[in-house]
Simulated scan of single mutants.
Amino acid sequence: MNFKSLNKHFHFTKQQRIGLFVLFVIMIGLQMFYFLSDFSISETKSSEKEQWLALQSEIDQEKLIHKNAKPIIYPFNPNFISDYKGYKLGMSVEEIDRLMAFRKENKYVNSAEEFQKVTGISDSLLNKISPLFKFPDWKQNKNNYSTEKKVFSMKSFPKKEKFIILDINEATQEDLMKVYGIGEGLSSRILKQKEILGSFVSMEQMKDVWGLSPEVINELSIHFKAVIPSNLKKININEASLKELAQFSYFKYGLAKQIVIYRSMNGNFNNIEDLAKIKDFPVEKAKIISLYLEF
Score class of each variant (00 low, 15 high):
V216M: 12
G267K: 10
E239D: 09
L255N: 03
R263L: 01
F251Y: 09
N236V: 07
K234T: 12
N266W: 04
I259H: 09
F248Y: 11
S264Q: 13
A256I: 00
H223R: 15
S241Q: 02
M265R: 13
N231E: 12
G254R: 13
L232C: 02
I259C: 06
Y250F: 14
R263K: 06
K233A: 14
I261D: 10
I228A: 05
S249G: 01
S264K: 15
V227F: 10
S264V: 03
L242R: 04
K234Q: 12
E215I: 15
Q258H: 11
Y262E: 06
S221H: 09
P229N: 05
L255G: 02
V227A: 12
I217F: 11
S264L: 12
S241W: 09
R263P: 01
N270W: 00
P214N: 13
I237K: 07
K225M: 15
N218Q: 15
Y250T: 00
N266S: 08
Q247W: 00
I261G: 00
K252F: 02
A246F: 05
I228E: 11
Y250V: 00
K243Y: 09
I235S: 01
N218L: 14
I261N: 08
A226E: 05
L255D: 01
L245M: 07
L242K: 08
L220C: 12
H223Y: 14
A240H: 06
L220H: 08
I259G: 06
I222R: 15
V227K: 15
L220E: 04
E219D: 12
R263C: 01
A226S: 13
R263A: 01
G267L: 10
V227P: 00
I259T: 01
L245W: 10
A240T: 03
F251P: 05
F251H: 04
I237A: 03
N270T: 06
N270A: 04
F269H: 04
K257A: 05
K257F: 04
N231A: 10
K252M: 00
S241P: 02
P229M: 04
P229S: 05
E244D: 10
S249A: 06
K233C: 09
I235D: 03
I261P: 00
L255E: 02
A246E: 13
K233V: 14
S221L: 09
V260G: 04
A226P: 02
K243T: 08
L245S: 03
G254C: 01
N238T: 02
S249T: 01
Y262H: 13
N266Q: 11
